[in-house]
């Protein structure tokens, strides 16, 4: 009986030792850098912790709304990146270009970066229809989305970028 116990204890110790040497490599789903997690339109933005978040998400606006907010969140940002918005009206003409805006200049390892651009609307300038907004990261087109602008009047871009 004592011998059996000793053998048992030896097996347990050996198993524990072996277990310490075994590691399970559970591979995660691919998480590429600078990946656009969301790109949407909203009416407002709110602060949440260190980030901002969209409020009143929609893809339909009226000239009377006064503005359209294009909100983007980018995941796995590990170096400084340049964001740029381009807005095209229903006639497919560029009406607003923010130029490059540097984000994470310190080159921190950030899980998520959120940013937005605002297109002010002025009634009576151009016709309603389907508008297109583009997001560029480091000069590459990274996301595109369209919204519908309705209402009696039109809109003229104004103001600066992000």
């Amino acid at each position: 009986m004592t011998r059996a116990r000793a053998v048992g204890a030896a097996i347990v110790l050996a198993a524990a030792g072996a277990a310490a040497c075994i590691s399970f490599d559970i591979r995660r789903f691919p998480e590429p850098e600078d990946s656009v997690a969301s790109f949407l339109f909203c009416r407002e933005v709110e602060s949440a912790d260190d980030l901002i978040r969209p409020a009143g998400e929609t893809s339909e606006f009226a000239a009377a709304d006064g503005r359209v907010i294009s909100f983007a969140s980018v995941r796995n940002v590990v170096k400084s990146i340049r964001l740029r918005w381009k807005w095209y009206d229903a006639a497919k003409t560029l009406v607003r270009d923010t130029g490059d805006v540097e984000v994470n200049a310190e080159g921190k390892n950030l899980e998520v970066v959120t940013a937005y651009d605002v297109l002010p609307l002025e009634p009576g300038k151009s016709g309603p229809g389907s508008w297109t907004t583009l997001l560029f990261i480091d000069g590459r087109l990274a996301a595109r989305k369209s919204f519908i602008l309705s209402g009696d009047g039109g809109h003229t871009p104004r103001g600066s970028g992000t």
């Binding site: 095209y88 560029l94 583009l134």
Partner: peptide
Amino acid sequence: MIGTLVRYGPTI
């Protein structure tokens, strides 16, 4: 297998 190229310049 028909393709369309799109360029976003001063116009689309």
